[in-house]
Structure formats: structure tokens, C-alpha cells
């Protein structure tokens, strides 16, 4: 499922890479950027965590002419007179403006590196609102954001992830170069798919999905229990042959209520007595419903 997400099939998607101090999601994010660049799409990076040089250095081998870096790294809060991009510019109008400036033709992919930086300085409800508007507006095709889950309260992480169409949670793997990705993907119809995959990232930023991690929780059936067939060595016959079954089915059990028995009880046999009654004029027949007064 990770490779599907890298190919980026769905428009209007919002993907969150959620990491913690145990395992950084920065590498995976760079792989996502490279995958988008290789598809000849425009990429806008809101960079707060790594500098432009570092990012371009990491993206060697990918066509970077469509990459636009909005520098929030050097001066994120606008302390100097000429800030390139500040945290407070994170709203719909400004973002649409800077995205439209460079790529009028095709909707671009917006990379937010990272959401945690923004969430520290802007109120979560404003961030959620902007993200939702970006998702709905047409300027941006896909939003990919990095979120350091251990930096925020559980509710904040939950609120932001509630908006996301896909969440990839990165956790350390068994080996040094491996990591485990827990993927939750919500389709537009409301169906939720979940998967867990081990991946590693090569030098050229391609992601190799290795396998699904072995289910440690699932219990292996005990082989001894499986082999033993309790009906193997019986001292009596447990199975019926066809003739035996026929004979068994012929037998009427005492508690069965067969058709013959029923008819015998309902219709008396010829020769026995029967009551015939015809009402005459003297019979007092009550026309009224005796239960008329009941409110039923």
C-alpha cells in the first residue's frame, strides 16, 4: 500500500507522515518529494525544518526544476525585515497565491515540512481550517505533511489526522536500515483500509517495500492437537451406511408429530361418533363484540 501512496493516484488527498523521536519520517518525506518530481509535477515545499541546500542535496538525481522551496527555515517568525516565508502566512489566501504564482497550469503538490512547526505557533483550529480549505480548493492537488506526533497533545494529533485521507505512522524496524509503516487509508466512500509494511529507503530515494511483518500475535495451532483424530480408533461404529440411514429414517420417534398422526387426531375415523349442530331461531347469538370496550 505504501508504493500505491507513493504513486499518488488520488487527487485532493491529504497524507500525513507521523513520526516520533524513535524513527524520523524525514527520509520518507524526501522519497515522496522525489516520487512526485519524477512524475513531472510541481512541488511546493514549505520548509521549516531543513534548509533548501540540504533538501536539494538530498534530492540529487531527481529533476528539481519543478521544485519550489518556500524558505521558512532561516526566519520562521519574521524577526528580520525581509522574511521569505513565515508561519503566519499559513492560511488559504497566501498559500493559494504562492502556489498560483509559479504553476498556473497544473495543480501542484504541497509539502509541509513540518506541520508540527506550524502547530506550535498557530492555533490548531486555524491549521485544521486551512488544511481543509486547501483540500477542498482546487489550487493544490495533494498535501503531504510531516507531523511529529510526540510533540503535541493526543487531541491535536487526532484532530489533524482526522482530516487526513491517509496516515503513515513510521516506527523503527528490527534492523538498522528498516522501518515499519502503519498505513491507514480512507477512501472517499468512507471505507477504511489498514496495512503494516516494512520498508527501507535506498540511496536514490526509492522505497523498497519488503514484506508484511510476521504476525507475532497470531497463535500457531498446536501440531499435536491437529494431528489427533478422535474418531480414529473407536470401539464402536460411528458412521452409517446408506441402508442403515434409510432404516433409521423410517423409524418414527415417539416425540415426532407426523402427518399421519395429525390427521388421525383431527379427522375421526369412520364409524366413530360426531357432533352435528345447526343453530335455530331460539338460539341467542350475541352480535356485539364482547371486547369492544377494550382499547386494543
Amino acid at each position: 500500500m505504501l508504493s500505491e501512496l507513493l504513486q499518488g493516484a488520488d487527487t485532493g488527498g491529504f497524507l500525513i507522515i507521523q513520526d516520533s523521536t524513535n524513527c524520523s519520517g524525514q527520509h520518507l518525506l524526501t522519497s515522496f518529494i522525489s516520487a512526485v518530481l519524477n512524475r513531472d509535477e510541481f512541488v511546493h515545499v514549505l520548509g521549516f525544518e531543513i534548509s533548501e541546500e540540504e533538501l536539494r542535496d538530498g534530492l540529487k538525481g531527481s529533476p528539481t526544476q519543478r521544485l519550489h522551496f518556500h524558505n521558512g527555515f532561516t526566519d520562521p517568525l519574521g524577526w528580520t525585515n525581509h522574511p521569505a516565508f513565515t508561519v503566519h502566512q499559513f492560511n488559504l489566501e497566501e498559500l493559494t497565491h504562492i502556489v498560483k504564482q509559479t504553476s498556473q497550469l497544473k495543480p501542484a503538490t504541497l509539502i509541509i515540512n513540518s506541520l508540527s512547526w506550524i502547530l506550535r505557533h498557530v492555533s490548531p483550529s486555524a491549521v485544521c481550517k486551512t488544511l481543509q480549505q486547501l483540500k477542498k480548493g482546487g489550487a493544490v492537488r495533494t498535501i503531504i505533511g510531516l507531523l511529529h506526533a510526540d510533540m503535541h497533545q493526543k487531541g491535536t494529533v487526532g484532530s489533524v489526522c482526522h482530516l487526513a485521507s491517509s496516515v503513515i505512522t513510521v516506527a523503527p524496524g528490527m534492523k538498522a536500515d528498516e522501518a515499519v509503516a502503519k498505513i491507514t487509508k480512507r477512501s472517499k466512500s468512507g471505507k477504511v483500509m489498514q496495512d503494516e509494511e516494512i520498508f527501507n529507503i535506498k540511496e536514490d530515494l526509492t522505497v523498497i517495500v519488503q514484506s508484511k511483518p510476521s504476525q507475532t500475535g497470531s497463535k500457531q495451532p498446536d501440531p499435536e492437537e491437529q494431528e489427533m483424530d478422535p474418531t480414529a480408533n473407536l470401539t464402536f461404529n460411528l458412521r452409517l451406511s446408506d441402508t442403515e440411514r434409510e432404516a433409521k429414517e423410517k423409524l418414527a420417534l415417539p416425540f415426532m408429530f407426523s402427518k399421519e398422526k395429525k390427521t388421525a387426531l383431527l379427522h375421526s375415523s369412520p364409524g366413530s361418533g360426531r357432533i352435528l349442530y345447526e343453530p335455530d331461531a331460539n338460539d341467542d347469538y350475541d352480535q356485539e363484540d364482547p371486547d369492544d370496550d377494550l382499547d386494543v
Binding site: S123, P124, S125, C128, K129, Q132, G155, T156, G158, S159, H162, L163
Partner: peptide
């Protein structure tokens, strides 16, 4: 959060 509520 989209209703502007900060309960969460």
C-alpha cells in the same frame, strides 16, 4: 476543530 472548537 473545524467548527473552531478547542475541546479536542
Amino acid at each position: 476543530a473545524l467548527w473552531g472548537d478547542d475541546l479536542s
